[in-house]
Design a protein around this nucleic acid. Structure first.
Lengths: 227, 227
DNA sequence: AAGTGGTCTAGACCACTCG
DNA sequence: GAGTGGTCTAGACCACTTA
């Protein structure tokens, strides 16, 4: 019911009409609108704020900056992260990339490399990300533009390309570090790394990002809640 | 409101009173009861079944047998698992165990080792679990009794000790296989393994299990949904 | 004070299950 | 057909935010 509207009518961060207005517009009662909004809020599509209104979820909100980052320090300390872009190239999709992004092999793809840094005594690089994005949307991405950004990648993607990341699926494995990752993460070649493969979806379950993250889990870990 | 009741009044798998009965009992309307039940169902404490009733969640239900197991085959195939108990010893809690289970170092603890097997061509052992349980609850656990069981561990714990696992926190790291794990999982010593540390909680956020799972992620992976 | 979401009510009707 | 959860209504009142 409201899903179709959520896809275009109100931009990220915008306030949607009040429950009473929506009820009148759709010819249902306020309680019904309320329930629909509740469901979308449970899916992190909307954010309610009492006394203010209901807003379209956005990665530009500091509260949601690291919504998809499940990394925490082993000793419980919380440090700010910094993303360091390394490369940004325009290539043709390999079979694997095409399958993940539901493209044809050979289609235009933007591939991006970056490390995640945690501030602190040693300031080590903890994550190396290889990111693949469909070229038809992200074709104008360049390393220079990224290097001038302080915000999170998803925040940038949202501002520049209007792509809101809604949900993601991750697959985790333990693998030996290859030479490239070992050099960037400053670990011996062959050292165990946590490989986090992520496919990120936007509205309509369209995959818009494939990401392979190499995590050095010596001082950090991936956390998860099960219920 | 209903939480206090959920802790003892109705057993696992039992049907709770109808929404109308509960409304009368607490002097609120059916809609309010409904909302409370909705919230508990969202936390997997209750299970609703239209036309039948609302039931207390249980690990004995086939639908929930592997609620906490986030392991899937890389090729998408689904195979039944088999748990092979290896040892069951009564020991004194080390510092690490005591902290995880909120006990004092030296308190009685039951430690259990088992592998998880996936049926199939090769029938390999994919997971080695080291499980630590508070001795005051699980003191009567023995290897012999476990070996005669076909059900999941949590299902057994629920039947034998009345302990329902409600939620869990997991921390994941990549580590090199030690000699013990390498032998049981049939991988070279030092091969990368996924270490999944889990603390499992029962009602009242009481930790009742600490588990260290060593996952061989060559043909399987840990999956997760982010939203 | 006006507008927002948050909670609750009392009742209606529907969809599903089972004897 | 009786009993269950599933959905919806129209309205009341409360808590929070902002001007």
């Amino acid at each position: 019911m409201l899903r179709a509207l959520g896809e275009g009518e109100w931009g990220p961060g915008a306030m949607i009409p009040s429950e009473a207005d929506l009820a009148a517009r759709f010819g249902v009662s306020q309680g019904t609108v309320r329930k629909a909004i509740d469901e979308m809020a449970a899916e992190n599509l909307l954010v309610r704020r009492q006394g203010k209104g209901t807003f379209v979820a956005t990665h530009n909100d500091p509260r949601a900056f690291y919504r998809f980052l499940r990394l925490a320090s082993n000793d419980g300390s919380v440090r700010p992260t910094r993303s360091v872009p390394l490369s940004c190239r325009h290539v043709a999709a390999t079979e694997a990339v095409a399958q993940a992004l539901r493209l044809q092999a050979g289609d235009a793809v933007v591939t991006l490399e970056r490390t995640l840094n945690f501030a602190g005594e040693n300031g080590e690089h903890v994550v190396l990300d290889e990111i693949f994005l469909p070229g038809d949307i992200f074709g104008s991405l360049t390393l220079e533009r990224l290097q001038q950004e302080e915000r999170s990648l998803y925040s940038v993607f949202e501002s520049w390309f209007g792509v809101r990341m809604i949900r993601a699926e991750e697959r985790l494995r333990a693998i030996p570090a290859n030479a490239h990752a070992a050099a960037l993460l400053v670990v011996p070649e062959g050292a165990p790394l946590l490989l986090v493969e992520r496919i990120t979806y936007t509205y309509g379950d369209r995959p818009v990002e494939w990401r392979r993250g190499f995590y050095n889990t010596e001082h950090y870990h991936y956390f998860n809640e099960l219920s």
